[in-house]
Design a protein around this nucleic acid. Structure first.
Lengths: 410, 410
DNA sequence: CGCCCTAAGTAAAGATACTTAACTTAATCC
DNA sequence: GGATTAAGTTAAGTATCTTTACTTAGGGCG
């Protein structure tokens, strides 16, 4: 799980007192992002002197943040002792609350998953789901050989926009009580860790950026097409959230569903506006389109079956898939003209069949706009949200662990 | 011209050697952003000790970066000597290459405009415009009582997307030779300063953020509607550029002009796709709409005249303006669903009449989406690009001036 | 008017964490 | 086994910060 070096923990004043801990952080980040290295190598990399590196590294080792990692014999000269960031200095919990499955994983500070559990999501209400998550969290933590206190940070991904101010979820769907106010606080308490809730598409974008298709991208857009429609934007490694955390809620994009001719009398009337983009491109829309195009076959028709049929040449299914591709191209074109990404990744249930869609999307894009980003399928598939949750949790966990281990030393 | 405190100049290592200059920068930024203060006040604000503040301030004063700014008598105790960042430590040049006017201004480090000149843009080619700019730049610099070397940084705003990699302008319109490769280099040489070229809508957004309607906004979108259509996005005080600097090129937004029904056979064919959003909502579109709606009146019909007629109750003009408002609402809705801004500012020629449009835009927005940002007219009007250019120039000038004055001291 | 109080600002001493330079250690090569 | 090379340490020196104590300058009040 590669990642950019992070900034030093916030609120660090420029006092000389903090200079030491800043340098220690610098070294630790170097070790984490660029792998094991000798003291001499670290000195060259960071510009610090060798004695300083030695002293800082000794301090890091003493509090358990760094550890030896074997030796290496250079072409000439003395054998070098390698150091690495100690991945066992802390652990995080990632949770993906999907429509069908709850996925949980515990990872160490290096991002290595040390325990994982997927359970069917049978919850009929927000609180039922929250309870399942808590129970499963206990199990994975135990399976990792850890206790509650070892989990430094937990991140939960779910549909909807989480409002940090009110502590409630907005635009949540299909789950009564999920928007309730005390829910997040309840999970936080039950878990005994600092916990944050994030939009699933945003986390999937982070995941795909950190360890999937978006690795080399400067500005990267992830479109989650499944039961619903969501989008996550990662700019220079940072999630783009918008003013209220609702950036990427493209379910409300006024595209396709209420056309407006370029001239003529004002056509905007309430009646035409009921549909949303979500209804036009989500998995359900693929099924509806296939049915309207005369597709028959195994019932009930699902998006998966439509794609399978298309792969085998069923004409109606092929047409339905093509239509989906054309609509997605409109979405990509709209998003590209606003954001100018260099990569758009298609994920979620429909994204699984991105190979069938890609050609149509690209061809249509050529007709629509000169701003054409690369379009690619998801690499992480169903794990994108979970890995994004872990990545996000790690980002806040690492400075937190560093600070705590530093505080009790002084 | 208020602004956030900036980060210390880049490439500052964490060595003790740089600690001093980091603290000096910290103090200077505090003085600049929060106004004059005494040494004791600065010590409280920054967390540094009083002797450290005294020493750093003395150094800053010696190299001409800070200066005394009067005294203040507190309720009790000794009179305090106030210090401020010296605005005369450096100057910047801002240039707005508009379709009708070239606007230039020289400002000091505090952002105060000390000389300004507006000249008609008669340039028929890229090189002719560049020459006019160079000549006018000489005049404003002289008018400000300065010589070439006093200008630390120049920023030029123009339509089109400037590609830093190739040094050429893409998507430039209406100006032959403006996309030529050596043009920017030529201006840079002629001016003898470091010079950068930026998209006009982006600069207008920066300007409106720094000293206009966007001051208190976290995520702010500026839509420039005039001869063309452009957009600038400012997130947390930073311009959002996209992967190739083309973010906000909403002229290519596939909206309005090629509608696509929610279901039915694939409708995307080349023929339907010629129009662009620019043709549908720019000033020209207002005129076209008014004409099609049967408006007569003083010829040639211009956007300005349509708005004037609408203000006086001409029914065709009112309908045309309403249509424009509805279309803009679609643009705002599309952009909002992607970016989730808290404020959208309408600027440019059409934006001048935002008061006429605002109600329609807001009403239509209510029909389109639950994501409704505040929509407001531009505060800076025609000066937005120029002030944005100055703001942008100041951002790079300030650390530059700081570094140079620090280097020759050691 | 002078004493007290308060806060600004300075001086001197002490602490910290860095760098430099010289040295030691440990490996390979010949 | 000595030369060579690079890793790592030791010791001295230095820059810059903080602390503490002091001085300076103003206003209030008896």
């Amino acid at each position: 799980m590669t990642e950019h070096p992070a900034d030093p923990p916030a609120d660090q004043r420029w006092n000389r007192r903090r200079l030491r801990s800043n340098n220690e952080w610098l070294l630790l980040e170097r070790l984490r992002t660029a792998g094991p290295a000798s003291r001499a190598q670290l000195a060259r990399d960071t510009g610090l002197s060798k004695p300083t590196v030695s002293a800082a590294l000794a301090a890091l080792e003493q509090v358990g943040l760094a550890r030896e990692a074997g030796t290496v014999v250079p072409d000439r000269g003395r054998t070098a002792v390698l150091y690495e960031a100690d991945p066992t200095a802390g652990y995080v919990l990632g949770v993906d609350i999907g429509r069908a499955w709850l996925r949980l994983a515990v990872a160490d500070l290096a991002g290595t998953v040390v325990a994982r559990e997927d359970v069917p999501n049978n919850g009929r209400s927000g609180s039922a789901v929250a309870e399942s998550v808590l129970a499963a969290a206990e199990r994975v933590t135990a399976a990792a050989g850890l206790r509650r206190g070892d989990i430094v940070e937990a991140v939960v991904g779910a549909p909807g926009v989480f409002d940090e101010r009110t502590g409630r979820v907005r635009y949540a769907v299909n789950l009564p009580g999920w928007g309730r106010s005390g829910l997040v606080a309840g999970m936080r308490e039950g878990l005994g860790t600092s916990l944050t809730l994030h939009n699933d598409a945003n986390l999937a974008a982070i995941g795909e950026y950190a360890c999937g298709a978006g690795r080399d991208s400067r500005l990267f857009v992830y479109i989650l097409i499944g039961t619903g429609l969501g989008m996550g934007v990662v700019a220079d490694g940072e999630l783009f959230r918008g003013a209220h955390g609702a950036a990427g809620e493209i379910g409300f994009l006024p595209l396709l569903t209420h056309p407006m001719p370029p001239a003529g009398p004002a056509p905007v009337q309430g009646a035409a506006l009921r549909g949303t983009l979500e209804d036009a491109v989500s998995g359900e829309a693929v099924v509806r389109g296939a049915r309207e195009l005369g597709m028959t076959g195994p019932q009930p028709l699902t998006a998966k079956r439509v794609f399978e049929a298309a792969r085998e040449g069923d004409p109606a299914a092929v047409a339905a898939v093509r239509q989906e591709g054309e609509r997605l191209a409109h979405v990509v074109a709209a998003v590209s003209s606003v954001l100018d990404p260099d990569l758009v990744v298609l994920g979620g249930g429909v994204g699984h069949s991105a190979d069938l869609l890609l050609q149509t999307v690209q061809d249509t894009l050529h007709l629509l706009t000169p701003l054409r980003p690369r379009v690619a399928p998801s690499e992480l598939g169903d794990d994108a949200v979970l890995l994004g949750a872990i990545t996000t949790a790690l980002r806040s966990a690492r400075p937190k662990v560093f600070e705590s281990h530093n505080a009790d030393h002084t």
